[in-house]
Design a binder for these strands. Structure first.
Length: 611
DNA sequence: GCGGATCAC
DNA sequence: TATGGTGATCCGC
């Protein structure tokens, strides 16, 4: 059976013009940027836009790099297509049975009892700017320098999109108005919106600055309201109170809600009913690219084996694991069935895994100047680590060459680090090594990333009041006062001396593969070696609700904000049910199953849950 | 565990 | 003239 259907697809596939017929087609598609399939592009002559972008980019280093990437992807895709042909000559009955068993297993996890919605602000940054300057509503306008972060719907008619280089956008539309971004303003507006969201689901989940997931099952129950009606009300309330228009998707799970919020954008909503048949039909004709987690590359790979829509996944199910791996198979199986998570939870409950900082600059080859950039990155990282209250056991240096090629090198300092001078000291040898590997190295970006994080926060109780760890977690002792009093300049001079030492030893070190810095570096002070990585998520007591809280500094979603807005709501609405006051009683106020059917929501974004 | 690649926003 | 920053995951080695 699988053989029959896959054969059919092969034949259909031979006429596919998207894949290999014209190498420039895929490159042009690539150059159009990632947001092509998003909303607002219907009226655009995509062919013409593509030509303009292509010509504006042609010959640049960026273009050459994209071309190179495109070539590699094309090669990979050819291998995949050839492998498919090879596989289909084999006996696939075992793989087919295994796939079907997995699908049957997944089917058992289907949960149609919840109303999950995804709320997405329409052209958010641009919309906020238009509130201050209404005259911009009727002209093409975008926010961002160098690269656009957002543009209004007038600009989209010209083929302009977020993520586009502004000089390219100007070619598409010379009269485009460009505004610098003002994140404080957007944050303030986002807070207003979240205040309203909390009334519909106090445990809503901010997906980003301008997006959120809500589970409105309880709200609908309590208010005897249809989900469509509830969302109409929610959107009207947001528009009235904040003057921001939002779109929404309503579905049995987050994955479909997310897709649905784009369907009637802007200022619209779309619902997929909580019925198996409705879900299956919706997925059947849905282009894979619409699913969160399937980007331009995976889209091309799937296309090359005849999968364009989620419905196309089924006939190919027997070969997916061998072609793309187990994770991808499981993910695609969930796409086909239209499964997704239903447990929506505040983002504070997620555990941070890394902190990073990076900047792009004009091409730099001068070694001293590059050290200056590294120093700056180290200083930024120190601030970020202080803000997030972490130390790091793994330090990663990221550079982008003038050719746009990206390289990373990581190292594990002998102990967790957080101070700029330490970060600099341990990152510098990696930079030096790269300079030796790449003679005449010229960079356009340099950054640092810290992972394997160790919290410096006081330990306590987690969100639900359980102790976070069986053993008392290690807490980094405060730095000795002596260290604190050393000024940054002084510290860097010390690091610079170390650098000279490093460079003197460099040849020998390299020959022994010993890019490990001298461990007698002044800053390393006693203190117990950090034991097992501190993972306690609960760190501080909320000044509003006096409950121990998960720590996470992500501004938009911080708990205090949440509590404050909840207080405001309660004052305004005489809210009496307020089960959210008692987070320790369970999974919150919602009537819903706490389980996550088929937790593998996204091939590249693992969700984190309470332990 | 490391480095490259992909993805989202 | 000129193409971003942050965080996360997966894969092959």
């Amino acid at each position: 059976m699988a053989d029959e259907s896959t054969d059919r697809v092969v034949e259909e596939d031979s006429g596919n013009s998207n894949v290999n017929d014209n190498a420039n087609d895929t490159l042009k598609y690539q150059l159009l940027g990632p947001s092509l399939t998003k909303a607002g592009q219907d009226a655009v002559n995509q062919q013409k836009v593509s030509e303009i972008i292509y010509n504006a980019s042609k010959g640049s280093k960026f273009f050459n790099h994209e071309q190179e990437r495109d070539r590699n992807q094309t090669l990979k895709i050819e291998r995949i297509a050839a492998e498919k042909v090879r596989l289909e000559k084999l006996d696939l009955s075992h793989d087919l049975r295994r796939a079907d068993e997995y699908l049957a297993e997944l089917e058992l996890t289907r949960d149609l009892s919840q109303y999950v919605i995804h709320v997405d602000c329409d052209a958010f940054f641009a919309a906020v700017e238009e509130l201050d300057r209404p005259e911009l509503k009727t002209v093409p306008m975008a926010v961002g320098k160098g690269v656009l972060t957002t543009c209004n719907y007038v600009a989209r008619k010209f083929g302009i999109r977020s993520g586009m280089a502004s000089f390219v956008a100007k070619k598409l539309c010379p009269q485009l108005v460009l505004l610098p971004s003002n994140y404080e303003k957007y944050t303030a507006k986002a807070t207003e919106i979240r205040t309203i969201l909390a009334q519909y689901d106090p445990l809503f989940e901010s997906a980003s600055c301008d997006e959120a997931y809500l589970n409105i099952t309880a709200y609908c129950d309590e208010n005897q309201m249809d989900p469509d009606e509830a969302v109409q009300r929610l959107r009207a309330e947001i528009l009235e109170n904040t003057k921001i228009s939002v779109s929404a998707g309503i579905a049995p799970n987050a994955k479909i809600a997310k897709i649905s919020s784009n369907i009637n954008k802007p200022n619209g909503q779309f619902r997929v009913a909580n019925e198996r048949i409705a879900v299956m039909e919706f997925m059947q004709s849905l282009p894979c690219r619409k699913v969160n987690g399937i980007g331009r590359v995976f889209e091309r790979e799937l296309d090359s084996i005849g999968i364009k829509t989620c419905g196309d996944i089924y006939p190919q199910r027997a070969i997916l694991t061998k072609l793309f791996g187990e994770k991808a198979f499981q993910f695609l199986a969930q796409c086909y069935l239209g499964l997704g998570r239903t447990n929506i939870e505040p983002v504070e409950t997620h555990e941070r895994k890394s902190v990073s900082t990076e900047t792009t600059f004009h091409e730099i080859g001068d070694k001293e100047e590059l050290r200056g950039k590294l120093r700056w990155a180290a200083e930024e990282m120190e601030k970020d680590l202080a803000r997030t209250q972490f130390k790091s056991r793994t330090l990663c240096l990221k550079v982008k060459l003038h050719t746009f090629e990206v390289l990373t090198r990581q190292t594990a300092p002998p102990r967790a680090v957080s101070q700029a001078k330490d970060l600099y000291t341990y990152a510098l040898p990696m930079l030096i090594k790269l300079e030796k590997e790449i003679p005449g190295m010229k960079l356009r970006l340099l950054g640092l990333r810290c992972s394997n994080l160790v919290t410096t926060k006081k330990t306590g109780l987690n969100f639900f009041g359980f102790t976070a760890q069986p053993k008392p977690p290690t807490v980094e002792p405060p730095e000795p006062t002596k260290e604190r009093e050393i000024g940054a300049e002084e510290a860097f001079e010390a690091a610079a001396r170390q650098e000279v030492q490093d460079e003197m030893n460099d040849l020998e070190q390299l020959s022994q593969e010993a890019a490990i810095p001298d461990q007698s570096i002044p800053t390393i002070e006693a203190g117990p070696e950090a034991g097992p990585v501190e993972e306690s998520p609960a760190q501080w007591e909320c000044p509003i609700c006096s409950k121990p809280q998960m720590a996470d500094d992500r501004g938009f979603n911080d708990h205090v904000d949440f509590c404050l807005s909840r207080q405001t709501i309660r004052e305004a609405t005489q809210d009496t049910h307020s089960v959210i006051d008692e987070p320790s009683q369970g999974t919150g106020s919602r009537k819903r199953k706490p389980v996550n059917p088929g937790g593998n929501e996204d091939p590249r974004q693992k969700r984190l849950f309470f332990r």
